[in-house]
Design a protein around this nucleic acid. Structure first.
Lengths: 163, 163
DNA sequence: CAAAATTTGAAACATTATAACATTAGCAGG
DNA sequence: CCTGCTAATGTTATAATGTTTCAAATTTTG
């Protein structure tokens, strides 16, 4: 079996969530930002799902906690987490996912499996350069790049082999 | 002044709309698809705006026509137009724009000016290849690619020079 | 501690999109 | 021509996603 990056490789998911939370705490401390209980809980829920979660799904899970939260609560937490590079919004899904490269400067690109729903965040400098240079070639000054690639992940390609 | 592609270059916009409609008619004939009055009108409105138009903006303009249309009418027309490669949906804006390369096989990428709102559809094979190969390098089988680059178009860069 | 700023709560509302079912228009074959 | 089929549209209601606004609570800071 070839070497695959997370999340395609089986892994200890609880540890993976804990790690993400620990990283987030460190990053927030460094940036003098307050990772309040709500924000941390939202981040935890996102990482636990390990696939994109919609704002209203998050809301429902907060509800299960006993938190009687309204939409703005979730959206505010998500705004905070996005601003600090801890989660990304997937525009083509209206959903959010934990950032796999929190803390590093980067532009996220995403491989989204249409079958199992998992998302791999790609950090590919050459690709980003190619995109940037294509934009500049039109005299366009790029600021935000949304690159989302939907298709089949390695696992689901095999599973769908027998169709 | 450097040579810029449409829509950055000044051009006769009425002619540009007529051309798009004529092309659409030809394409639909070829595909045995029916470009009904509603569908054609929606396409025309989109081209006239020459910048992304939301479904409910379209709905309002149909209303001005006297058309008493409900949301499904617009969404159905948009589905049709998308399926036949006549318009694209811009996921990051929840809006629609006329396809600049209707009829040709292509994957659209978009340069979206955050200031004036105009959108340039980029057809850059090298870029598409780079994206595809980055995906395959992760053993991922790409199907749909969403590439939307927000920033400043040439005109607005100059306009914002004096900030 | 008191003032200021940030965060959260709560209600209402705005925008975007779809489901479900009835109706009408276009068209092929008898 | 008209019957029956399919595609397209009308209509109503509702779902899903996201924002505005203002008040209350909490944290930070002087």
């Amino acid at each position: 079996m070839p070497e695959h990056p997370l999340p395609y490789r089986p892994h200890n998911h609880d540890a993976c969530v804990s790690q993400a939370l620990a990283d987030a705490q460190a990053i927030c401390r460094k940036q003098n930002a307050r990772l309040t209980p709500i924000r941390e809980r939202v981040l935890e829920l996102i990482w636990q799902a390990h696939k994109p979660l919609g704002a209203y799904e998050l809301l429902a899970r907060l509800g299960e906690d006993g938190q009687n939260a309204a939409p703005p609560t979730v959206y505010r937490a998500l705004d905070f987490l996005q601003q600090h590079g801890l989660v990304h919004r997937i525009a083509s899904l209206n959903a959010f996912i934990g950032c796999a490269h929190a803390g590093e400067y980067h532009r996220g690109s995403f491989l989204i499996c249409r079958d199992c729903g998992t998302v791999l965040e790609l950090a590919c400098p050459e690709l980003n350069n190619a995109i940037e240079s294509a934009a500049r070639h039109q005299s366009f000054q790029p600021e935000e790049v949304t690159l989302e690639i939907a298709g089949l992940c390695p696992g689901c390609q095999q599973a769908n082999h027998h169709d």
